[in-house]
Design a protein around this nucleic acid. Structure first.
Length: 485
RNA sequence: GGCGGCGUACCCAAGUGGCUAAGGGAGAGGUCUGCAAAACCUUUAUGCAGCGGUUCAAAUCCGCUCGCCGCCUCCA
């Protein structure tokens, strides 16, 4: 399989350091505020990458950290008149709530920066000993000029960056590009004891400490949002490789941004949607599906309209699932031959696992994979339209359902029953009728239909339509579903 | 200024050298249906921002132009 590596700027054949094992470190969130949908994208992307690698048979160790001490947390704590750890705890809990609602799985290890202070201090000390870092007025800085490969990830030239002069000049630094490994704490700020006095870790050093501790000095994949590329990941590489003398992460994977009206969603622009407010209007599966319908490296435009389209797509799956379930719950008539249409469908079906994997093997092309899934769905519907029957057909449709759920498992979609999907839609769209109430009305309408009282039957259906429920008359019953899109 | 990306139908989107340019949504027509819905079929890009070039062959490679965006400062 091929993965795009930011370090090389191209797709590379994926070869794990240890055969069949993959070690992934993804940068998580700084717990100082609510999570927005951009955080969700990153979490979902790496969740799917991890799932697919497992599906392919790799033994995956996935680490995703929390930054629970930094300037923003301290600022927030001061604003709210609480201590930093209260803020960190509050937003960590909120992060978990959001992720649970979204259906994003936990990482195997979810370390917090402040649990690794001794490790960080010892790395910083070693960097000083090796001459890569220097102490200045109680803080410690990494000397960028000592690490000659600096800029290799973000493809930056140190001289040009200095010419850019957008870096804050700090008297205590030898070079404006040097970054803090350890920061002296000011009066009233949280602190830990260190050889350089009271202070706290710089932003980047935590990832070095935690990834090395849990994954080793060199590991397979390091990821995060594209905005972490510089300076965060560049600095991580510098301090980690200077410290160990070994290559840090082999593959660097960065997800693209979510945009609103073509602009990057960000806190500073104020154009962001919190995860919980999106989930107030859309089912979590819709959000996940939407994010997977565009390649993870591309920007993705976020809007209600796009989400409604995603909702319609998912509904198409569940509608087809009902048709397949209906067939499977029927008794076969003993006919044990597949029709010509069945044979053609069977042949086609057999090719789809390869197609799905081929798509995912190509830098996790979920958009293409989803396209293939909908081809299966169309073909399944087409086959069902031929009104097939028999045990062989049942077997074929069972295999179809299994295949779709196999793919769905990897992408974390299609995991529910059609009924669960519709009940969830009812809740989200705030349709004020119970499932019982629906069936009662359906029975009433059924009686009218038997009397051929089409007027009454149609008026009941009209009532349903007005509250957002669609009735489907079938051979032996009437089904209901929530109107989507 | 430096570095990077994008521009594919009405909308979203895959495709990065070679069969009829995936898939979803929307629209129109049809089949089915008491009528619907769903499903299926047909239809909506002789063309992939524009111009030029390389090639037997390009949406796909190269050059230029136009438009949009990102990073270079905390940021998923």
């Amino acid at each position: 399989m091929k993965i795009y590596n930011t370090l090389s700027g191209g797709k590379e054949e994926f070869v794990p350091i240890t055969p069949r094992k993959v070690k992934i470190y993804a940068c998580g969130v700084t717990v100082y505020d609510h999570c927005h949908i951009g955080h969700a994208r990153s979490a979902i992307v790496f969740d799917i990458i991890r799932k697919y690698l497992k599906y392919k048979g790799f033994d995956v160790t996935y680490v995703r950290n929390f930054t629970d001490i930094d300037d923003k947390i301290i600022k927030k704590a001061q604003q709210e008149g609480v201590t930093w750890d209260v803020v960190a705890r509050k937003y960590t809990e909120e992060y978990y709530r959001d992720m649970d609602m979204l259906g994003v799985g936990r990482a195997d290890v979810e370390p917090k920066a402040t649990d690794y202070i001794p490790e960080m201090i010892s790395i910083v000390q070693e960097l000083i000993n090796k001459g890569y870092a220097y102490e200045s007025d109680g803080s410690v800085y990494f000397s960028v000029s000592k690490f000659h490969a600096y800029g290799k990830l973000s493809k930056r030239d140190m001289d040009e960056m200095q010419a850019g002069a957008r870096v804050e000049v700090d008297e205590r630094k030898d070079n404006p590009l040097d970054f803090a490994l350890w920061k002296k704490s000011k009066e009233g700020e949280p602190f830990w004891e260190s050889p350089w006095g009271l202070g706290r870790p710089g932003w980047h050093i935590e990832c070095t400490a935690m990834s090395i501790r849990h994954l080793g000095e060199t590991f397979d994949m390091h990821g995060g949002g594209a905005d972490l590329l510089f300076p965060h990941h560049e600095n991580e590489i510098a301090q980690s490789e200077a410290y160990t003398g070994k290559p840090f992460a082999k593959y660097w994977v960065h997800n693209g941004f979510i945009t609103i009206k073509k602009e990057k969603m960000s806190k500073s622009l104020g154009n962001f949607f919190m995860i919980k407010e999106v989930l107030d209007k859309f089912d979590p599966e819709v959000v996940r599906f939407f994010l997977l319908s565009t390649h993870y490296r591309s920007p993705i435009e976020f809007s209600d309209e796009e989400l409604r389209e995603a909702e319609s797509s998912i509904d198409r799956y569940y509608t087809t699932a009902v048709r397949m379930d209906d067939f499977l719950s029927q008794k076969g008539d003993g006919q044990n031959q597949l029709s010509d249409a069945g044979k053609m469908f069977e042949k086609l079906l057999l090719s789809f696992r390869d197609k799905f994997q081929e798509a995912m093997d190509d830098d996790f092309n979920t958009a293409l994979a989803v396209g293939h899934i909908f081809e299966v769905i169309r073909e399944a519907n087409r086959f069902l339209d031929t009104k097939p029957s028999g045990a062989k057909t049942a077997e074929l449709l069972l295999n179809t359902a299994k295949l779709l759920s196999e793919f769905g498992n990897v992408l974390n979609i299609f995991g529910r029953t059609p009924r669960e999907w519709n009940l969830s839609l009812m809740k989200i769209k705030k349709i004020g009728i119970s499932e019982e109430g629906i069936y009662e009305k359906i029975r009433e309408r059924q009686e009218a239909r038997l009397r051929k009282d089409w007027k009454s039957a149609d008026s009941i259906r009209k009532e349903f339509e007005e509250i957002g429920i669609i009735l489907e008359d079938k051979k032996d019953r009437t089904d209901w579903k929530v109107k989507v899109g």
